[in-house]
Simulated assay, not measured.
Amino acid sequence: MQSHYFKINKYRKMIERARRIFLGKILVVGSINMDVIISLNTVPKAGESILCKEVSYACGGKGANQAGAIARLGFETVIFGAVGNDQYGEILLDNLKDNKIDMSRVEKIGDQTGVAYILLEESGENRIVVSLGANEKIKPKDIDLYVKPLLDEVDMVMLQLEIPLDCVEHIINLAKVQGVRTFVDAGPVRNCRIESLKNAWCVSPNETELGALFNREIKTETEMIKAAEQLINIGVECVLIKLGAKGCFYISREERIRKESYKVKVIDTTAAGDSFSAGFVGAVTDNKTIEEALVYASKCGAIAVTKKGASDSLPTKEAVESFEKLYML
């Protein structure tokens, strides 16, 4: 009887994994924030007071942005995160629902939802200051309760560093044991140790974040390769460095691929990195080659900069398919 049970359980898992490969189910664990966008001609200098052009609000947070992009690209999407018991929290939950994201695991913790204050210059460049709010109140026990049971159902886990770092490390290790790949968008670094990321499938910092991970300035491709190799030597399978307008750089033991960015009209760079990450993860989940995934990700990132705000600028599957016609200069 016991042998019969294990056979049934084995076949059930095989069927479940085959179903996941066909559907493409992605779990995003990360921050859920309200973005307060302050539009300026240029940011003030130290001690300078200036008038802004306007203040607007948009649903954001690196976790919610990536989940929104993944869902719009056509993948079954589940998110785990936290909001506060306030009006911002209700608005953000409604937005997740509108994007057809499974948000049944989102917790309400405390009184304050995370808020990102975005200084948006006329050039499209931005500077972001984040108040983490409920995002920072997530505990490893919440990961065991809400995330661990999902690991047998998903193809990939996407993470960022806007939740407590002990939770990030816990998820990476749980997923490794379960045989599920984790993609870690390495921002904001905030004293993250590279050893905490050693079981990740892919670590993806931008140029500044890569330097912060190693506590040194990194500018040249040689320096990037050296840093990426350090991550690979401790167990990370690949490193994807986001270089903004300069494109991206993928590094693994087997490959080094440099991809230039697409030229489009830049309105706001908010969520460009999140859209790029979502495009890469989605394409890999869809069994595309790494080179194909980088092309797809670059189109997603380029689409995001052509609109203002985070949620409104996220790419759709249809937009990516029509990229050359609609967006390229």
Rank of each mutant, 00 (worst) to 15 (best):
M1A: 15
F6C: 13
F6A: 12
K7A: 07
I8F: 09
R12E: 15
M14I: 14
M14C: 07
F22V: 15
G24C: 10
G24D: 10
K25Y: 06
V28S: 10
V28K: 03
V29L: 10
I32M: 04
N41L: 12
V43F: 04
V43K: 13
P44T: 13
P44S: 10
A46N: 13
A46W: 03
G47L: 07
S49D: 12
L51Q: 14
L51N: 15
K53W: 03
E54C: 07
A67N: 08
A69Q: 01
A69V: 02
E76G: 05
E76Y: 11
F80E: 00
G81L: 04
G81T: 02
G81P: 01
G84I: 11
N85D: 14
L93S: 01
L93I: 11
N95S: 13
D102V: 04
I118G: 00
L119K: 00
L120E: 07
E121I: 03
S123G: 10
S123C: 06
V129E: 07
E136V: 00
E136S: 15
K137L: 13
P140I: 05
K141Y: 10
D142F: 15
V147K: 02
L151M: 10
D152G: 15
D155L: 08
M158Y: 04
L161P: 04
L161A: 06
L161H: 09
E162V: 05
P164K: 11
V168Q: 07
I172R: 00
V177N: 07
Q178V: 09
G179S: 12
T182H: 02
A186Q: 04
P188L: 06
N191E: 14
R193H: 11
R193C: 12
W201A: 10
V203F: 04
P205L: 06
N206T: 07
A212M: 14
A212I: 06
E217L: 06
I218M: 10
E223D: 13
E223N: 08
A227D: 05
A228S: 15
A228M: 03
E229G: 03
N233F: 02
I234N: 01
C238Q: 12
V239G: 03
L240S: 03
A245F: 10
G247E: 03
C248D: 07
I251V: 13
I257D: 07
R258V: 06
S261G: 08
Y262P: 06
V266W: 11
V266M: 15
I267Q: 11
D268V: 02
T269M: 04
T269D: 07
G273L: 08
S277Q: 09
A278M: 02
A278L: 01
F280P: 00
F280C: 04
V281K: 02
G282C: 02
V284P: 00
I290A: 09
L294M: 14
A297M: 09
A297T: 04
C300A: 15
C300F: 12
V305D: 04
V305M: 09
T306A: 08
T306E: 14
K307S: 13
S311E: 12
E318G: 09
A319I: 02
K325H: 11
